[in-house]
Nucleic acid binder design. Structure first.
Length: 644
RNA sequence: GCCCGGGUGGCGCAACUGGCAGCGCAUCCGAUUUGUAAUCGGACGGUUAGGGGUUCGAGUCCCCUCUCGGGCUCCA
């Protein structure tokens, strides 16, 4: 275990709501990150520090962190009893509880978890005080001689800054931040076992991580477990199957999404909409091939920086071809073909095309992480920095409009910066990075968007603005990015003729708005829990004839709606009306139009809104008007039409 | 890619220590003709992910592969 890279703290973004499993960011709270410990009674060499703490006077965050961190110690205490050979990693609080990493002689089982939890409860019942003490680095090294991970942590600690924490018979190298005694550890539950690399690097050994949930009251803990259940209900993989939106087949391959008719309808509506918005804003849509010569990607730099994430090269007749992982090079070819004047700029080239990326097997998931995806992409060729700023601003405003219409709530902006120290990952050109980064920061501020900055998260060729969102499961994913690119224009020696008659190099803005169709639809499924607003709903209404003799009239009603381009189905199965309503509800169809003798007589239908609510009989022409209004305004809530 | 846990009709699940692969829903057929969340009856449907091994006998035990899930890592 030599040559471990420096530990890089897990990057954290404040979560809008909900829970996420992550290391707590607050530096005010003592994290275990560089303290830790072991299990052999209190050292006589150590001198006590830290006094009694009044938990109730602390802010809730701080209080919880102490409880969670303390629970992690108790977990380690139990583990050392279960397996004395256990090597201890770290055990920090996270915002749903805590975890502790161990290297163990055998894999943990579910039964172990039960045993550990019982053992923890016994320790808690014992009300053992947590006692902090200081010791010298030399003493610590001696004491943790058999704990390689503790020694590794110790390397980063300065003399005079080494402390440990003891409760009962257990001692852990630790920076501090505990409750007074184990009795102050409230409601908790051991949740799961996972693998985790030491210090978060896959070059290091992999440890076994035990996750625990911990809240101040049993009610809050139960609430958390309930929220996990609810999240499962909203999972796009589940709803996608239930509503026949998309499918994934082993035979077709992981991450290769099959869009079923109803999912394809949602996608088509989104696609038409975004393309129209782009056309209104001066984008020109193109169509370029999904395969290009390898040489093209060598020149763009993708081959060097990205080939591991590309499908294997195809070779025929001595030529090498690649499935494109992105389409910037193709769009650049379009720009490079012919000489452009500054008068034409900016030139906005857009495409909804398939990209192919060899995502590693362990990270393909549903429709949100796939290998073949349709990207809402565009490249804006700008003449100068002022133009770049204006274009980035335009993109941000378009995003705000689009996400507003879709009703997205859990998204946030992030300014992703490069890392001058990392020459492998990033193109080496400090002034270029500096220019791009300050520009993006400026525009974000001007548009008035809140954002976070994240070092080391940029694209290989430049800084970017990422739009992050939170999945139902509470995980963070990137929706789209906006990038300022000085690199590719240089690689391809792009130029245009300026006002001065001289040749100049353009700057490219890469941008997405709707993300990939796969990821966006996955997000929308979860956001709406499958209840798409009318304009996106695969079936916008179901006509339900009460008895066989009403089927003809039901078809007539449906035809009237279809004449207004509404998507209508007629449920003419030999079922009872109640059964048909139930099925329509389960399929989350926005409107149910029940027709029987009375309605046929009055050229009407009894309207039922998805989710319950019988609106009574309405004339068919009124129904058509209502649904059109709701569709055309892209209303998020039935009957509440949005001003456009 | 790595760690752990799974894979049984279309979907959701069952089958004690190895001993005849079952149930619900869906589908299909028939009966019923219905007023706001499940009408009744019947039938069809599985080489237990794939391959190999142990055994008189494998859904069950062992090995390999594929694949899914939870994490970790990665993510233009």
């Amino acid at each position: 275990m030599h040559g471990w890279p420096r530990y890089r703290p897990v990057r954290v973004r404040p979560s809008s709501e909900g829970w996420r499993s992550r290391v707590e960011p607050r530096s005010a709270s003592p994290s275990l990150r560089d303290g830790r410990g072991m299990s052999e009674g209190v050292s006589t060499m150590a001198s006590p520090v830290e006094e009694h703490v009044d938990l109730q006077s602390l802010p809730k965050d701080e209080r919880l962190n102490r409880m969670r961190h303390s629970a992690a110690h108790v977990l380690a205490e139990a583990m050392v009893e279960l397996m004395p050979e256990a090597e201890l990693g770290i055990g920090p609080p996270i915002d749903t509880g805590f975890y502790y990493d161990f290297r163990l002689p055998r894999p943990l089982t579910q039964e172990d978890l039960g045993w550990l939890e019982e053992r923890m409860r016994r320790s808690i019942a014992g009300k053992h005080p947590f006692v902090m003490s200081a010791l010298t680095k030399a003493d610590a090294e001696q004491r943790w001689a058999k704990q390689p991970f503790k020694l590794d942590l110790l390397k980063d600690l300065d003399e005079g800054n080494v402390t440990q924490c003891t409760h009962a018979a257990f001692t852990d190298l630790c920076r501090g931040g505990h409750v007074n005694n184990t009795g102050e550890i409230p409601a908790f539950k051991l949740m799961s076992i996972a693998g985790a690399y030491w210090r978060g690097s896959e070059k290091n050994p992999q440890l076994q991580r035990v996750y625990g949930a911990l809240f101040e009251t049993p009610e809050e803990l139960a609430g958390y477990e309930q929220a996990l259940e609810d999240a499962k209900r909203r999972d796009h993989r589940r709803i996608g199957r239930e509503l026949d939106l998309f499918a994934l087949y082993d035979e077709v391959g992981p991450g290769h999404v099959i869009w079923l008719p109803d999912g394809a309808t949602v996608r088509r509506e989104l696609q038409r909409w975004i393309e129209d918005l782009e056309v209104e804003r001066g984008y020109q849509h193109v169509i370029t091939p999904v395969v290009a010569k390898r040489e093209l990607y060598v020149r763009s730099g993708h081959w060097e920086h990205y080939k591991d994430a590309m499908y294997p090269v195809m070779e025929r007749e001595g030529e090498e071809y690649c499935l494109r992982p992105m389409n910037c090079p193709s769009h650049i070819m379009i720009f490079a073909d012919g000489l452009h004047s500054y008068r034409e700029m900016p030139i906005r080239i857009a495409e909804l095309g398939n990209m192919h990326r060899w995502e590693k097997s362990g990270q393909v998931s549903g429709m949100s992480r796939v290998r073949i995806m349709t990207l809402n992409d565009a490249h804006i060729f700008c003449a100068d920095i002022a133009q770049v700023e204006a274009e980035v601003e335009g993109v941000l405003r378009l995003m705000e409009e689009v996400y507003g219409v879709l009703g997205l709530r859990k998204y946030s902006y992030q300014l992703s910066l490069g890392d001058p120290g990392d020459k492998e990952k990033y193109v080496d050109n400090p002034p270029m990075w500096e220019a791009g980064e300050s520009l993006l920061r400026r525009v974000l501020q001007r548009v008035g968007l809140e954002f976070e900055e994240a070092k080391g998260e940029a694209a290989f060729y430049g800084p970017k603005i990422d739009v992050q969102f939170e999945t139902a499961a509470g995980k963070d994913e990137t929706l789209v990015t906006v990038q300022v690119d000085f690199h590719l224009p240089n690689q391809f020696q792009l130029e245009f003729v300026g006002e001065d008659g001289e040749r100049h190099q353009p700057i490219i803005v890469h941008r997405g708005v709707i993300s990939t169709m796969e990821r966006m639809v996955a997000l929308l499924i979860e956001e709406y829990e499958g209840h798409f607003p009318l304009w996106l709903a695969p079936a916008q209404a179901v006509v339900i004839p009460i008895a066989d003799r009403h089927v003809a009239y039901a078809n007539a009603v449906a035809a009237e709606l279809r004449a207004a381009n509404l998507r209508v189905r007629v449920d003419d199965r030999n079922e009872r009306m109640n059964g048909k309503i139930r099925d329509a509800q389960l399929k989350k169809v926005p409107y149910m139009l029940v027709v029987g003798d009375r309605e046929a007589e009055a050229h009407a239908a009894a309207v039922r809104v998805r989710g319950g609510g019988d609106l009574g009989a309405m004339p068919v022409t009124d129904i058509v008007a209502r649904l059109r209004g709701e569709r055309d305004s892209k209303a998020l809530v039935p009957g509440v039409f949005r001003e456009r």
